[in-house]
């Protein structure tokens, strides 16, 4: 996944005190995203690539680039698997 991403148009997002809630209007499922996850999602939907988002996360949270890439890859897999986020093609 080296491209950019966009939020599925069928998903409603509401920011909360501890992150965000995402509601998939077609499936009726809703999800909780923690603060770090919401920060990453915001970067991705604002045009950051996976690599750029990892660099931002590593810088903000003082973690290694490797850890940041791994955590973002896991988050992306979850978001795409749930059809909340889609890759621009």
């Amino acid at each position: 996944m080296s491209g950019t991403f966009f939020l599925n148009p069928q998903v409603s997002l509401a920011e909360t005190d501890d992150g965000a809630v995402l509601l998939h209007e077609r499936t009726g499922r809703y999800w909780q995203l923690n603060t770090t996850g919401f920060s990453v999602l915001r970067g991705l939907t604002n045009g950051q690539t996976c690599e750029q988002a990892a660099q931002t996360l590593a810088s903000q949270c003082a973690i290694s680039d490797t850890r940041a890439r791994s955590d973002i890859a896991a988050l992306l897999a979850s978001l795409c698997s749930a059809d909340l986020l889609r890759e621009c093609r």
Binding site: V21, T27, G28, R29, Y30, W31, Q32, L33, N34, T35, T36, G37, S39, V40, L57, C61, A62, I63, D71, I72, A74, L75, S78, L79, A82, L84
Partner: peptide, 13 residues
């Protein structure tokens, strides 16, 4: 403190 990004299924309606 670092909290890894996490997505949690809450439910459905």
């Amino acid at each position: 403190g670092y909290e890894p990004p996490a997505l949690t299924a809450v439910g459905e309606f």
